[in-house]
Design a protein around this nucleic acid. Structure first.
Lengths: 252, 252
DNA sequence: GATCGATGCCCGAAATATCGGACAAAGTGA
DNA sequence: TCACTTTGTCCGATATTTCGGGCATCGATC
């Protein structure tokens, strides 16, 4: 993305973008020397930039152990972004409501290019939480929601749209394209989709589509629960999802 | 903060910081030409930087009307920040729970320098929502929570800490210092604070202190409600706040 | 207490990113 | 239709920021 020519001289802004992306990838504070090594930025440059960014509250020095991580300014800017996107702002309300009332992890997801993206995640009340990091991108076929998000495309469009390697699950299993296409048709018919033990053995995902006025699925709202969740409980959750998704689809 | 010498030549990163702060101040998309004018940045430079930032998803072009505003990357970085700060992460749960169960706007606030700062805001279910923008800073005496956040200081410390002009309310009224100090003592005694019609005529704020092991108030959790809310309802809300604050104080 | 690695800062040199201005394209209004 | 404003891109010059290397400090390990 921000391609910094390693070795050469680069703009401060590009160095900063690389730095922030690196921290986002780590999802943990990092030492300045490590940032320099891992992003291919000269050490003195990183010190210089980090000082600037800390002063602007974009970054924060942690603990006193010389580590840096995102600072409060990022939270402010991020909140501004969420408030500015109408659909996401409304989805926030639905996701918190679902998570709070049902007590399970609820998410709001969209497409980003040819990848599936978790935009909002609100954990449930379980001891061992199932949840995803905000902003992670995942191959579309690995997810329940993915089956809804491409349901406006023709089969050959889908084949062209999703990279071939994305049909390989993390454990090496292949998702058969015909089954994937059948799932999509079924999901469209039923108005929801459920997958069990897809990317791992113990989770079930249930998702309902948020559609634009033209009927195209632009987002999904979903629950992530343990695979052994009772069937009637799951049925109730699917009804909740459909209701939320309908509210979001209408509210445009 | 990011002081850009107007007129002179400046680093890209300083221009970018000024740009982002400007957008955060506006809380609305802006046209590129306006950004250039308002931040004192040369037009060609803004175009150059905006292109870079849009590519990195830090900014987004809106609508097609040539306006820019924060992009999804800010949301990701901001979420990372929230997750990384233990107290804030836990506070998120409390704030959403309070807002959801009581149906009123709940907030989590801290000090930032000598100003009061809204860190988390979760609106209630009213038709006309009372809420604050994330990241706004407000003079300490204007707020209920402010009376808790300085309660570890001696009177003369407080006088030295809070700028004199911060005792003037937006409508020009003066907050009498003696009353302010008495409020603080009372709040400390009672374990909560309530103010009515302080910055405006129709709101009541109730807040409870989150304290560190040494007993110092490091944050507050609060409700913002219409001033005509029933007394027993308010009493219930104060109990909820105290319980939440106690959980946050203990969970360290 | 000596060695080693890591941290943080400083400085001079030069590679280059910023800036001003010019220009085409797209609106706007009369 | 023409005049005028606004938007977005391009280009060359130079003021400046990046970069590499050096140095003092600090802690850990032996």
């Amino acid at each position: 993305m921000a391609d910094v020519k390693t070795g050469g001289r680069a703009r401060g802004i590009d160095r900063v973008i690389a730095l922030m992306e690196h921290l986002h990838g780590l999802r943990a504070p990092a030492r300045i020397a490590d940032i320099a090594r891992d992003t291919g930025t000269p050490r003195s440059t990183v010190y210089e930039l980090v000082n600037t960014l800390v002063e602007a509250r974009w970054l924060e020095l942690r603990d006193g152990d010389g580590m840096v991580y995102f600072g409060p300014a990022m939270h402010y800017y991020g909140s501004d972004y969420l408030d500015s996107v109408d659909l996401i702002r409304k989805a926030r309300g639905e996701v918190t409501h679902l998570s709070e009332s049902v007590g399970e992890t609820a998410q709001f997801c969209m497409l980003d290019g040819d990848k599936y993206l978790v935009v909002l995640n609100e954990p449930g009340r379980r001891m061992f939480r199932l949840s995803s990091e905000i902003g992670i991108k995942v191959p579309i076929p690995w997810t329940a929601s993915g089956r809804l998000l491409v349901d406006h495309m023709a089969p050959q469009e889908i084949r062209a749209f999703i990279p071939a390697e994305d049909f390989t699950l993390p454990d090496g299993r292949q998702i058969v394209e015909e089954e994937f296409l059948r799932d999509i048709a079924q999901a469209r018919e039923a108005g929801f989709v459920r997958t069990t033990a897809l990317v791992d053995r113990f989770t079930t995902c249930m998702a309902a589509p948020v559609r634009d006025p033209a009927g195209r699925c632009i987002a999904t709202i979903c629950f992530v629960v343990p695979a052994d969740t009772e069937a009637d409980q799951q049925a109730m959750m699917i009804d909740e999802l459909k209701a939320s998704a309908a509210r979001l689809s209408g509210a445009r």
